[in-house]
Computed example of a mutant assay.
Amino acid sequence: MAPRPPLEPTAVWSLVTGLLGLGPVALVLAAVALRRVASRHTRGRGLAIAGGVLGMLGTVALAVVGTTLVLTALATRPLPADVPSARSAHAQQLVTGNCLATVPADGPVDSVRVVPCADPHEAQVITEFSFAENAVWPGQQAADARVARACVLDDAEIGAGVRTVTWSPTERSWAKGDRIGLCLAVVDGGGVTGSFLDGSANLP
């Protein structure tokens, strides 16, 4: 009776690394194991195939997680104070100085159109209010009130018809780490050029 072929250790390791979620490692080990099983006439082809399947699934999962993290980082990265060209952005990316083509309707705000302040626009972020990182959610009305208290125009701006709009974190965005409230100077109908921050704003 012929002796039983030895078990290919690389096949075992491909399965182990696949079970541990090390997808790319499991794929490489599975490929190596299949070649060795064929050339050395050892056992373990089934283990190598299982390791390869697990490795493929793990690699896809890692790619999805990596892509999600990159997209999340890009979606929350602060903008420069004055963007060089018009672009869409998430409200959480806005900083003091950003000019908005239009002001979205009342309600939760996600995507906005940010333009260079030299271009005609309807609003500009003029101040930010930062809640403490360890603060407890105060409730929507209290959050709105705190941001509103930091939102002040001078007499000349009020006389020219400028009004304020405040955007504060919602309970949902607060749970995701949002701690910034924004104060916007708004001229209904748009057509403003320049910046309220340096006194260069020209009203229509």
Results as ranks from 00 to 15, higher is better:
Arg4Ser: 14
Leu7Pro: 03
Pro9Ser: 11
Ala11Lys: 12
Trp13Tyr: 14
Leu15Thr: 07
Gly18Glu: 02
Leu20Cys: 12
Leu20Val: 13
Leu22Ile: 08
Leu22Lys: 13
Leu22Thr: 08
Gly23Asn: 06
Pro24Arg: 15
Val25Cys: 11
Ala26Arg: 09
Leu27Asn: 00
Leu27Ile: 01
Val28Gly: 04
Ala30Gln: 04
Ala31Ile: 02
Val32Trp: 15
Ala33Asp: 01
Ala33His: 06
Arg35Thr: 08
Arg36Thr: 02
His41Arg: 14
Arg43Gln: 00
Arg43Leu: 06
Gly51Ser: 07
Gly51Val: 03
Val53Ile: 10
Leu54Ser: 07
Gly58Pro: 07
Thr59Phe: 11
Ala61Tyr: 15
Leu62Trp: 12
Leu62Ile: 03
Val64Ser: 09
Gly66Ile: 06
Gly66Thr: 00
Thr67Gly: 15
Val70Cys: 07
Val70Trp: 12
Val70Ser: 09
Ala73Gln: 08
Ala75Phe: 15
Leu79Glu: 06
Pro80Phe: 09
Ala81Gly: 08
Ser85Leu: 14
Ala86Pro: 08
Arg87Cys: 11
Ala89Asn: 05
His90Lys: 08
Ala91Glu: 07
Ala91Phe: 12
Leu94Pro: 02
Val95Phe: 04
Gly97Arg: 02
Asn98Gln: 03
Ala101Val: 13
Pro104Tyr: 03
Ala105Val: 11
Asp106Phe: 11
Gly107Cys: 05
Gly107Ile: 04
Pro108Arg: 14
Val112Asn: 00
Val112His: 05
Ala118Lys: 15
Ala118His: 15
Ala118Asp: 13
Glu122Ser: 11
Gln124Ala: 08
Val125Asp: 00
Val125Lys: 00
Val125Asn: 00
Thr127Trp: 02
Phe129Trp: 03
Ser130Lys: 15
Phe131His: 06
Glu133Pro: 11
Ala135Trp: 10
Ala135Glu: 10
Val136Pro: 05
Trp137Met: 10
Pro138Leu: 02
Gly139Tyr: 12
Ala143Asn: 03
Ala145Phe: 13
Arg146Gln: 13
Cys151Pro: 09
Val152Gly: 03
Val152Ser: 04
Leu153Thr: 06
Leu153Asp: 04
Asp154Tyr: 03
Asp155Glu: 08
Glu157His: 14
Glu157Val: 05
Ile158Ser: 15
Ala160Ser: 13
Val162Thr: 03
Thr164Ser: 10
Thr164Cys: 06
Thr164Glu: 01
Thr166Cys: 10
Trp167Met: 09
Thr170Asp: 06
Trp174Lys: 13
Lys176Leu: 05
Lys176Arg: 14
Gly177Cys: 05
Asp178Pro: 13
Arg179Gly: 00
Leu182Trp: 11
Cys183Ile: 05
Leu184Arg: 01
Leu184Ala: 04
Leu184Cys: 05
Gly189Asn: 05
Gly190Arg: 04
Val192Lys: 01
Gly194Lys: 02
Ser195Cys: 02
Phe196Gly: 07
Leu197Phe: 00
Ala201Ser: 10
Pro204Arg: 07
